[in-house]
Every structure is written in structure tokens, then in C-alpha cells.
């Protein structure tokens, strides 16, 4: 099993969610985060005054999936989250030792 964490532009969330649902992904955590990567914030001009916004709003999604479906999920997020511009985000894939569904006690892929 893998934990897939992705940082996306906020407006791409609907597209990514649609794609993952079509893949049969039934659960996803979403959080609102702020940060910077190579994008390093952006400059806004407002009424002639220019100032820098240090942290850029992003969406962080987390999905736990079986090893088999993980490549398809990564591909779907890459495609749906893509704009081609700086700041499209990152996808991180990590191994998962165990998953337990608290309600039933099911473990492993049965708990996904």
C-alpha cells in the first residue's frame, strides 16, 4: 500500500477529485495549506503598490491506495492537476505499513 500526498493549485481540486472518483478511489483527505516551492510566492500589484505574497495557497490531498492502483492515481493527479505553469505542485508517494479501519478492525487493503 502507498500513501499518496499531492499539493495542487486550489482550482484543480474538482478536476482531480473527478478523475480519482472515476478510478474508483473512494476516500480522500483534503486540507487547505500554504507554502512555496520553486514558485517562491508571487508579486501582486494593488492600486499601484507592489508587494510580495510569501506563501501561496495550495490544496493538499492524501490518498491511501493499493500498490496496483497507485501508478494510475499518480498519473490521474498529474494530468488533472496540470496547467504547465510554475506552481502546479508536487506528488509524493510513500510506503504504508498498515491501515486499520477503526469501526470494524479490518486491516490492510480490506480497510481501504
Amino acid at each position: 500500500m502507498k500513501l499518496i500526498v499531492a499539493f495542487l493549485k486550489p482550482f484543480k481540486l474538482d478536476d482531480v477529485k473527478d478523475r480519482l472518483q472515476r478510478l474508483g478511489v473512494t476516500g480522500m483527505s483534503v486540507s487547505e495549506v500554504r507554502g512555496f516551492g520553486r514558485q517562491a510566492g508571487h508579486t501582486e500589484v494593488y492600486r499601484g503598490a507592489e508587494y510580495t505574497v510569501d506563501f501561496v495557497p495550495k490544496i493538499r490531498i492524501e490518498v491511501i491506495a493499493s500498490d496496483e492502483i497507485t501508478p494510475a492515481i499518480v498519473r490521474a493527479i498529474t494530468e488533472a492537476g496540470h496547467t504547465g505553469e510554475i506552481g502546479d505542485g508536487k506528488i509524493i508517494v510513500m510506503p504504508v505499513d498498515e491501515v486499520v479501519r477503526i469501526r470494524t478492525g479490518e486491516r490492510g487493503e480490506d480497510a481501504l
Binding site: 486550489p10 487547505e32 495549506v33 500554504r34 501582486e44 500589484v45 494593488y46 505574497v53 495557497p57
Partner: peptide, 12 residues
């Protein structure tokens, strides 16, 4: 602040 930042940017 997260949402406010997005809306302010859109407003600008």
C-alpha cells in the same frame, strides 16, 4: 486566512 488570501487575490 487561506480562503481570504485567494479571494483577495481574485479581487485584485
Amino acid at each position: 486566512e487561506w480562503r481570504a488570501g485567494l479571494v483577495r487575490r481574485a479581487y485584485r
